[in-house]
């Protein structure tokens, strides 16, 4: 183990969190992330037993999840494993399932992840998301994930279930992304929104 200390995307030692009204916003620096892209002629593997989902899909497994990010490309995430060489683990996991030819790239530190969880069902979460992203909740509900734009920033929006969403944004813009989420949460709690 290195004796260097890691810092969050905000340059801090500890992750940020904030609860406003029904919604809790939590930075998740512990989630490891790697991209997996099929090479020409390869079939989709099943790393960690995950059935890699189709366009817009999100598949959750035991301690690991995958979401579609581009044709032939997925993001594999694993909570609690950010300090590991996760890309290497994904390569091994693909090898374990038959060794199809893929390109894997470490992405953990390319992004910052925020969980937003509602204590009062989906309504507060839906009300928040409609301020942030132009996604039809009827099409991008539980089990769906997509990349889109949020206040001029590229993000992945993962609707894990009705009351829980994870937003992956680019790490360097973590401050602007937090500001956007925090401001929307604060306004929502004023009561101006349904």
């Amino acid at each position: 183990m290195t004796d260097l200390a890691s810092h969050t995307a905000f340059g801090a030692a500890q992750p940020r969190d904030r609860t406003i009204g029904a919604l809790a916003l939590t930075e998740r620096p512990d989630i490891a992330l790697a991209s997996l892209t099929l090479r020409a002629g390869s079939r989709a593997p099943a790393p960690f037993g995950l059935d890699l989902p189709g366009p817009g899909g999100l598949a959750e497994g035991e301690g690991v999840a995958a979401f579609w990010s581009a044709p032939g490309q997925w993001m594999i995430e694993a909570p609690g494993r950010a300090e590991s060489d996760f890309a290497a683990e994904v390569v091994r996991a693909v090898g374990d399932t038959g060794g199809t030819d893929v390109s894997v790239t470490e992405q953990t530190d390319g992004f910052v992840a925020f969980d937003i969880v509602s204590r009062h069902g989906p309504a507060p979460l839906d009300a928040l998301l409609e301020r942030l992203v132009n996604l039809d909740p009827a099409l991008w509900g539980p089990g769906r994930a997509t990349r889109t734009v949020l206040h001029h920033m590229s993000v992945f929006v993962l609707r894990r279930d009705a009351s829980r969403v994870t937003i992956w944004g680019i790490r360097s813009a973590a401050g602007s992304l937090w500001h956007a989420l925090d401001a929307a949460l604060t306004r929502q709690n004023v009561g101006g929104y349904p």
Binding site: P55, A70, P71, T146, T148, V149, S154
Partner: peptide, 16 residues
């Protein structure tokens, strides 16, 4: 002025 085939890049999406 009419039917045109054109290239669009899904830059804030799947990069297709």
């Amino acid at each position: 002025a009419g039917v045109h085939r054109e290239l669009w890049y899904h830059e804030q999406g799947d990069r297709s």
